[in-house]
Simulated scan of single mutants.
Amino acid sequence: MGDDVVVSLDLSNYELRWPASLFISEGERVLRSTGPWQDRAIWLMTEALAGTTAVADFEDLPNHTAPTSDPWATTATGWGTKRAVMDQHDWFTELIRRAPELKHAAAPRPYWPQRRGNGLAHDGSTARDTRRDFARLIGEFADNGYLVEVFGEECIDDHSELPDPSDVIDRRLGIPDLWPLAPEAWGEDTFYGLIEVFHDLVSRPRTRRFHSYSGCGWHHSEFHNGPARILYRWKVNQLLREAGIEYELAAEGEDLGRLVAVTDDARSQLVHRALNDSPPDTTAGVRHAIALFRGRDASAESKRSAIFNLARILEERRALIKEHLGKDEGALFEIANRFDLRHRRADQRGEYDEAFLDWIFWWYLATVELTNRLIASRSLA
């Protein structure tokens, strides 16, 4: 009689190329899938983890497709020995459970020419380099099948005419001949427009099959745009941040998937709470105000309109505010009434720096969020 063979999961050799939360959600979906699941698991690890080490470790493990009631079943370790404690299902389950422990893949430390400032691949233009990096990123998404749902996929057995990618982009952006991507030809508006367009085009294939006939290659299927857009925002925002570009793709709100001004973590959390915790009758107004204020091309007039939307919500809650602030409630509305924000009267003040608009917007949004919590606490009482 032998002992259990315990196979431990060593995470030190695996590096994550995805957000951990996305890897977990897609991994849990794989584990819930019916029928053969190993190919889905291998595809997920191929995408989300750097290198091939994890896939190789997974494939080395036994595949117990069904539990056995015989504790002394014959295994590769010999007759009369209990089966290994960890099989492919156990291993993958633990990998997903422990995903937050995985280190993220990082770019290699600079090599000699880069440290010496003699990199031959760069022309000295940070903007151009960023655009080339973005084009390479889109190439990676395309290679992994993320554009198949909208661009189609060639197959030697299928002679259907595929959509023209340039036409697909042109219909959305209004600029022809953008595919294949040529980053050296893009102006700023085209570059930022493409960032937003591809956010709406990507869709993750959860399965793939290899068509070996005449070297046809991989074919992708079972598309879902939710995880694709999460991954796309994560990768593009990382690219923009590293380039020092102070925009990011919005992850929620009326301007989901559109470039917005970067804010600090505290204000980002405030936006998240205001978007998600507002009562149904004010949600649309809050979403619209935030979209007006944080848009990449937001003007002073857009910011005034955003403040007006928030002031209207607060006006409707004036009794609630007065109940908690007493006579100080009037100070909240005095600024909106005395300055050139809402009523636009001749006696209002209009000569002030645009930074004032930023201050009043965040003050009003924080007050909306405060009143959201007061309303919620009343409903629980």
Rank of each mutant, 00 (worst) to 15 (best):
K322I: 12
P100C: 04
H224Q: 14
L341C: 04
H272P: 01
R204C: 14
Y364L: 14
D3P: 00
H159W: 11
H343L: 05
G78S: 02
R241Q: 15
I290A: 05
I245S: 06
W79F: 11
F339I: 08
G27E: 01
K303F: 02
T53C: 05
G244I: 13
L44R: 01
A54K: 03
N225G: 02
K103C: 09
P62E: 06
V148A: 04
F134E: 00
T190H: 03
Y232V: 12
A331Q: 14
T207R: 07
D277V: 12
P67V: 04
D158E: 05
V286Y: 05
N372T: 01
A66N: 06
R204T: 15
F134A: 08
S305L: 15
A20D: 07
Y192T: 10
M1I: 11
A66Q: 13
R233T: 10
E15L: 15
R132D: 07
A289F: 02
A185K: 12
R128H: 15
C155R: 15
W91S: 00
L120I: 14
R109E: 15
R338M: 11
V168H: 03
R204V: 14
L231W: 05
E252G: 08
N13W: 06
K303S: 04
S212F: 15
W186E: 08
E153D: 12
P19K: 08
P205A: 09
V148S: 10
T34S: 13
